[in-house]
Nucleic acid binder design. Structure first.
Length: 319
DNA sequence: CGACTTTGACCAGCGC
DNA sequence: GCGCTGGTCAAAGTCG
């Protein structure tokens, strides 16, 4: 954090420290022998840095998702609420560099616990739309948000994962609108910013390529979808993108025939977890979805383990 | 014509 | 305080 160099090391370490992370509980590997169709997914890892904190049985997690544990498929990184953790994915972070993701590392803080500031509003997005301002003093493009001094950026749950793909923007069944693109320091590849086009859904995602391995796309999701997959895309995208093996995985997690994208799975998992706590009286949240993603009986045993680490990172504090 | 992408500018946070 | 960087906005352009 003191300088940028450690940040630069992230990508190296992200991969090189796989075993290390395993030992330190910094990385979770979800494994599957199958390759993602079209993605030619290479070793990737599920890195629930936050949830792990050295207390998570990764194998259990993998098992819970119906994954075997010899080769990894996708890297997921829970970087929720931790700027460092996020940044190291974004090529700007300092968490993953020289410092392994030990329980004491900078990645260990939890926004859900410590930063649950319950201000679920999006700080930046809550900026007054310029057009709405009466004064119309549009000398500046962006009006200043009436933000209090100590107020920190809202920290949404985040997930990052790596996918080996030639396309930057992986279809995940949701509709996204690109709202920005920035060059990333020390990386020749720009980072793209997407926002879910569904109204009231503030989910965002960043997509960038690893400069270490340009074939790897790093996707970071922020927030949780509060809606279902768009009907027009639902199924098609997932079905197109995922081979039966992957769908099996999804089915396993879903306990049903519906095909789901791993990313979606990531989001549904939180929702699933959230349901018991948050769902009451929430008419807006289509939590019937949750029923679709019940963990399979086979994984029921592991669910307890999931419960151990999921809540702190996934549970969104309901106002 | 609406939805989406591109792109330059602005802002906030952080380190020095 | 300054500069750097990441994140976001919104006008303009593009596409179907």
């Amino acid at each position: 954090m003191s300088d940028h160099e450690p940040k630069d090391l992230y990508y190296h370490d992200l991969f090189q420290y796989e075993a290390h992370e395993h030992l330190n509980g910094g990385m979770v590997s979800i494994n599957d022998h199958q390759n993602l169709q079209g993605f030619d997914v290479n070793p990737s890892y599920m890195n629930f840095t936050e949830c792990s904190k050295g207390s998570v049985d990764y194998n259990s997690l993998a098992t819970a998702f119906g994954l075997s544990s010899s080769t990894s498929e996708a890297l997921f990184s829970s970087v929720e609420g931790n700027q460092n953790a996020v940044d190291h994915l974004g090529g700007g972070g300092g968490g993953g560099g020289e410092t392994p993701l030990t329980p004491n590392s900078s990645v260990s803080s939890s926004s859900a616990e410590a930063d649950a500031d319950k201000d679920c509003g999006k700080n930046k997005k809550d900026r007054q739309p310029k057009g709405s301002s009466e004064d119309g003093d549009s000398s500046k493009k962006v009006s200043k948000p009436a933000k209090k001094k100590g107020e920190k950026k809202q920290k949404e749950p985040r997930f990052a994962f790596m996918t080996k793909s030639e396309v930057d923007h992986l279809e995940d069944g949701y509709r996204w609108r690109k709202y920005g693109q920035k060059a990333v320091k020390n990386s020749p590849y720009p980072r793209s910013y997407y926002r879910c086009t569904t109204q009231k859904c503030g989910v965002k995602k960043r997509v960038e390529r690893s400069y270490e391995d340009p074939s790897i796309v790093i996707t970071t999701y922020e927030g949780q979808h509060n809606h279902q997959l768009p009907a027009t895309l639902r199924g098609n995208a997932a079905a197109a993108l995922f081979p039966p093996s992957m769908l099996n995985l999804s089915n396993l997690a879903a306990g049903g025939p519906s095909s789901t994208f791993p990313q979606e799975l990531l989001f549904q998992m939180p929702q699933y977890m959230i349901s018991s706590n948050v769902n009451q009286g929430s008419s807006r949240n289509p939590n019937h979805l949750l029923q679709q993603y019940q963990l399979p009986h086979a994984a029921a045993d592991q669910y307890g383990l999931l419960q151990d680490f999921v809540p702190s990172m996934f549970l969104k504090q309901e106002p």
